[in-house]
Amino acid sequence: MDLEAVRTFVAVAEAGQFQKAAADLSITQQAVSKRVAVLERELGVRLFARTPRGAELTIDGQAFLPHAREVLRAAERAVASVRTGRRPLRVDIIASRGAASGLMRDFHRAYPEIDLAVVMLLDIERAVAAIRSGEIDASFRAVAAPGRPLPEDIESVRVLDEPLQLLTGPGHALAGARSVTVAELVGHRIWMPGIVPGSEWAAYYEDLVAEFGLTIEATGPNFGSDALLDTVADTPALATFMSEGTRLVWPAGHGLRRIPVTDPTLVYPHSLLWHRDHPHPALATLRAHLAATAPRHGAAGTWAPDWVLPR
């Protein structure tokens, strides 16, 4: 489909006259008529009816108009996607309620002039492939699980260590504690449905269990955070881990508790990944912003697996 013909059709529809559309497009009225005629032949319908008042859309023209506008918008997005410095910075944040989402919201507030597109990809292999193909510009990850190093063309920098908290219902044995040590968690059932085998967060919790002898259960289907909160609130024997930056709202009757974990503080490490050879122009601004605003990693008294340390 000829985009110039579609653009001309929309111009005539909005102007209501072929002559006015010609002036708006800086072309002759004859050129406008020719383009509309070509489009009508291609579609096999009449798009306008000539009247003393000008050009009025036929029923077919009315049906085609919203789609024509969308075709033009899609074309503009396609051009912007490859125009240097014009397309949005595309960043994978894994989940909308997590710390990475908060980091990107803060970045957007600090730099509203930078066009930003946020996506959510589940696994690190998909994220790395998307970075290498140019589908996205960066991704927040825990770097790579053991035995699966990042490709040589992927750069990473650790930007945030996010403390874990224990989330319990009001009837849990630890519900009244202001903080709990890791040793005090031994023997308690920590329920975390939705851990994907082979993912970097699965590797994180596997190392956590091996290091401290905790009991983490990933049994049962994952019905989302609301179902998780309902179950924890109603089951005194269950607790779950929740990252400090995870934003959650629950009914007042749940009486849930978010309890800091200490000695050591368990932190989930977030790193920013990007392609070494063709970074987006705004990526340097994002990295500088994260370096200036995100809490420093590797603080004394914290724990994270060795394999997530910077390369």
Rank of each mutant, 00 (worst) to 15 (best):
P146I: 03
L214P: 13
V143L: 15
A117L: 15
P66I: 01
L3G: 09
R126G: 01
S81A: 15
P236D: 03
W201P: 01
H172A: 05
Q165E: 15
E135M: 14
A127W: 06
E14I: 07
A233Y: 03
L122P: 09
A21V: 09
A117F: 10
A99K: 08
T265G: 01
S33N: 00
R77A: 06
D161R: 00
A75K: 07
P221V: 04
T265Q: 12
P52V: 12
A299E: 13
L39N: 14
A227F: 11
H278Y: 11
P52L: 15
E14C: 05
P170Q: 04
Y268W: 13
V157N: 06
P295C: 09
A21L: 08
L248G: 00
A127M: 12
Q17W: 04
A291T: 14
G171Q: 07
A63K: 13
V180H: 07
S26M: 15
E14R: 13
R126V: 07
G176I: 06
E4A: 14
A129H: 05
W303Q: 08
R189P: 06
V159W: 03
D277R: 15
S271G: 14
I190D: 00
I59T: 13
D24A: 15
A304V: 14
D137S: 10
E56T: 01
G16N: 03
E162S: 05
L122A: 11
T302L: 00
A218G: 15
L309R: 15
L266T: 13
A202F: 14
T265H: 10
E113Y: 07
P151V: 10
I27N: 05
D161L: 01
V12L: 12
A142D: 00
R105Y: 10
A202Y: 08
S139H: 10
S81L: 02
A227P: 01
A22D: 12
T285G: 02
R258E: 06
W191H: 08
D277F: 03
S33C: 00
P52C: 13
A299L: 15
A173T: 08
L229C: 04
A31P: 08
P269H: 05
A227D: 15
H289T: 00
S81Q: 10
V232H: 00
A100K: 07
I136H: 08
D106P: 01
S156A: 15
G220L: 07
E155P: 09
L25N: 11
T285K: 01
L57Q: 01
V143A: 12
T8R: 13
R97M: 06
V157L: 11
W250N: 08
D207Q: 04
T181A: 10
A203Y: 05
A173I: 02
V157G: 06
R87T: 11
I259R: 12
D226R: 09
R158T: 14
D60I: 02
E244N: 13
G98H: 14
A130Y: 03
A284C: 03
W191G: 11
